[in-house]
């Protein structure tokens, strides 16, 4: 089958790959590029485990074709930390025990990054609705939301009692 050549930027580095039309961006990330941090929980955009940021927009990588990545800049969970230094969101998820099995965690962290990039001061309700597309079956969302609210305050330079 004919493949399409695609050139994109992934986590700040230029990436070139060949992909078939029906391959989603998630397929490409996981099976072609080898970035397996983005997870497939449903393949239909309902769980958010495959969340990535494409040109500053949060998307489900299972709902975008690999060929559509041409010329785009993509951030995956592997690109959230700065080298050896965890992103404050990652650190806060650890401190708050905001993960149990860890399968939805990459998607939640990417989605939280997108939230705080757009709205550094979300209310709890805004955070919950923003993250409604990221299913977590382990935590009941409590510690996730607490971590998000607290890291948002940290990143704004506020200290929360």
């Amino acid at each position: 089958m004919a493949k399409t050549y695609v050139s994109a930027t992934i986590n700040g580095e230029s990436a070139e790959f060949l992909c078939e039309t029906q391959q989603t961006l998630l397929d490409v990330l996981r099976d072609v590029i080898g970035l397996t941090g983005s997870k497939e929980g449903c393949g239909s955009g309902d769980c958010g485990a495959c969340s990535v940021i494409v040109d500053d927009r949060l998307v489900c990588s299972c709902l975008m074709l690999g060929v559509e990545a041409e010329g785009k800049s993509i951030t995956t969970i592997e690109g959230i930390a700065n080298g050896d230094t965890l992103h404050p969101i990652q650190q806060k998820f650890l401190e708050y025990a905001a993960l149990q099995c860890g399968f939805c965690t990459p998607g939640l962290i990417v989605a939280t990054k997108a939230l705080l990039d757009e709205n550094p001061n979300p209310t709890e309700t805004e955070a919950r609705y923003w993250l409604a597309g990221n299913l977590c079956r382990c935590t009941g969302y409590d510690k996730v939301i607490r971590a998000v609210m607290d890291v948002a305050a940290d990143m704004r330079g506020e200290t929360v009692a």
């Binding site: 969970i77 860890g102 962290i109």
Partner: peptide, 21 residues
């Protein structure tokens, strides 16, 4: 006490290897 879990960093960075990975 509430230390950070041993497998935590792998799970917040996408390193953790699940079966499909």
């Amino acid at each position: 006490t509430r230390p950070i879990r041993p497998d935590g960093v792998d799970k917040v960075t996408g390193r953790a290897v699940f079966a499909a990975d």
